[in-house]
C-alpha cells in the first residue's frame, strides 16, 4: 500500500501536515500574543462588552417575541440559553485579561461589573420563560438596565483607549 504511493506524494503529505501544524500554532498563539499591552487588552474588553450587549439584545428580542406569542417557548429557551453562554463567556474573557495601568484597570473593573451584571437578567429570562405566563415588564426592565450599564462601560473603555474623545 505505502509502496506504490510515490515518494513525492509522501513528501507532499508531510509538507501539508507541517503547514497545517504551523498554521494551527499561529492561529492558536495569535490572539494571546498581540494582547500584550493595555490598549490591545482594552480593545479586547470592548469586544467582549459588544458580545455581552449582543446577548442582552438577543434575550430582549426573545422575550418580546415570546410575550406576543410569536416564538415557541422551547425555541425561546434555546435562544436565551445560548445568550447566557455568550454573556458568561464575556465575563470570563474580561476577567482573565490583565492590564498594567491605573486607568486601564479602572475601565476593566467597570467593564467586568457591567458584564457580570448582564448575566443575571438573562438568566432571569429563562426563569420567566419556564414560569406561568406573566407580563414581561420586570424582565425587560432588568435587561434594559443591563444594556445601559454595558453601554456606559464600553464608552469608558473607549475613552481610556483614546478611541472616543473624553
Amino acid at each position: 500500500m505505502t509502496r506504490d504511493l510515490p515518494r513525492r506524494l509522501r513528501r507532499a503529505c508531510a509538507a501539508v501536515a507541517a503547514a497545517c501544524v504551523t498554521a494551527g500554532a499561529l492561529v492558536a498563539c495569535g490572539p494571546a500574543a498581540v494582547r500584550a499591552d493595555d490598549v490591545n487588552a482594552l480593545r479586547s474588553v470592548s469586544d467582549h462588552l459588544d458580545a455581552s450587549a449582543s446577548a442582552v439584545a438577543t434575550a430582549r428580542l426573545a422575550v418580546r417575541a415570546r410575550a406576543t406569542g410569536r416564538l415557541p417557548s422551547v425555541t425561546a429557551d434555546a435562544t436565551v440559553a445560548e445568550a447566557a453562554e455568550t454573556a458568561t463567556g464575556a465575563v470570563h474573557g474580561i476577567g482573565t485579561l490583565t492590564v498594567a495601568g491605573q486607568d486601564a484597570a479602572g475601565a476593566r473593573e467597570k467593564a467586568l461589573d457591567a458584564a457580570s451584571g448582564a448575566v443575571g437578567p438573562i438568566a432571569a429570562v429563562r426563569t420567566w420563560l419556564g414560569g406561568s405566563p406573566s407580563a414581561p415588564d420586570d424582565v425587560l426592565r432588568a435587561l434594559d438596565d443591563a444594556a445601559t450599564a454595558l453601554d456606559d462601560a464600553d464608552r469608558m473603555v473607549r475613552r481610556t483607549t483614546g478611541e472616543v474623545a473624553p
Binding site: D50, S54, L71, E82
Partner: peptide, 11 residues
C-alpha cells in the same frame, strides 16, 4: 446583535 448561535436565526 452579532449572530453567534443558530437560535438567533429564528428571531
Amino acid at each position: 446583535i452579532a449572530v453567534d448561535s443558530m437560535a438567533q436565526l429564528t428571531l
